[in-house]
Amino acid sequence: MGNSSRPDIDIEKPFLHKVLDIIGITALLLVLASIVINWSSIPETVPQHFNATGEPDRWGDKWTIFLLPSIGVILWIGLSFLERIPQSFNYVVKIKEGNAERQYYFAVTLIRLIKNEISIFFALLTQMIVQMWNGQQDGLQFWVIPVFLVILFGTLIIYIVKSIQWR
């Protein structure tokens, strides 16, 4: 694609980004710790999939409870490495010397927001599954998926609009 002509700029991680990272990874680690602590009380089968109304429609072995938080941790780590190389990203505008730093900064911010939104969402879903096996709720609450999708796609749309404005 010819990204070699793009400037290689180090993007500083501001305090807010560090806070977001701490919140995202802490949510996943806390839910993993909760599973480990409560392992003996977890039933042998746990919900794996939910229908449109939030009711479980597929069940699996209790080890599958680790699936979402583990995927979340792997994504979090992978996206953390990816955000270090913004010059290799695809952009909606042409990257030049004059706009590179701003475009890189906001692209890295986008990746950080997305990785932490996904982390918090996976932790929340896992916690809801935990509440189901504890008898504290019957299924997923109806608002969870739509709110997550609005947040995730809202973040992307705002980034694309702003990226075009910051040419």
Rank of each mutant, 00 (worst) to 15 (best):
G2F: 09
S4T: 15
S4Q: 15
S5L: 09
D8Q: 10
E12K: 09
K13D: 02
P14L: 07
F15Y: 14
L16R: 12
L20A: 14
L20N: 08
L20S: 09
D21K: 12
D21M: 11
I22Q: 12
I25K: 05
A27E: 01
L29Q: 01
V31C: 04
A33C: 13
V36Y: 14
N38F: 02
W39G: 11
S41Y: 07
S41R: 12
I42R: 10
I42P: 01
E44D: 13
T45L: 11
P47D: 04
Q48V: 09
H49L: 01
H49I: 01
F50Y: 14
N51W: 07
A52Q: 14
T53R: 15
T53G: 13
G54A: 03
E55G: 12
E55W: 07
P56D: 02
K62F: 06
W63V: 11
I65M: 09
P69E: 03
S70V: 14
I71N: 04
I71H: 06
G72N: 00
G72A: 03
G72Y: 06
V73Y: 09
V73R: 05
I74C: 10
L75I: 15
W76D: 07
I77D: 04
L79T: 01
F81L: 13
E83P: 03
R84P: 02
I85Y: 15
Q87C: 06
Q87P: 03
N90K: 06
N90W: 01
N90F: 02
V92N: 04
I95V: 12
N99L: 03
N99E: 02
A100L: 01
E101G: 08
E101Q: 14
R102M: 07
Q103D: 00
Y104S: 06
F106H: 13
A107V: 05
A107M: 11
A107C: 09
V108K: 04
V108W: 00
I111M: 09
I118D: 04
I118T: 12
S119T: 00
I120C: 08
F122E: 00
F122R: 01
F122A: 05
F122I: 08
F122K: 01
A123F: 06
L124H: 11
L124R: 11
L124A: 15
T126P: 05
T126A: 01
T126V: 05
M128T: 08
I129M: 10
V130P: 02
V130N: 12
M132N: 11
W133T: 10
G135C: 05
Q136T: 10
Q136M: 11
Q137A: 10
G139M: 05
Q141T: 11
V144S: 07
V144C: 07
V144I: 13
I145H: 09
P146M: 06
F148G: 04
L149T: 09
L149Y: 08
L149R: 06
V150G: 06
L152Q: 05
G154Y: 02
G154S: 02
T155D: 02
T155H: 07
I157Q: 10
I160N: 00
V161L: 14
I164C: 04
R167K: 14
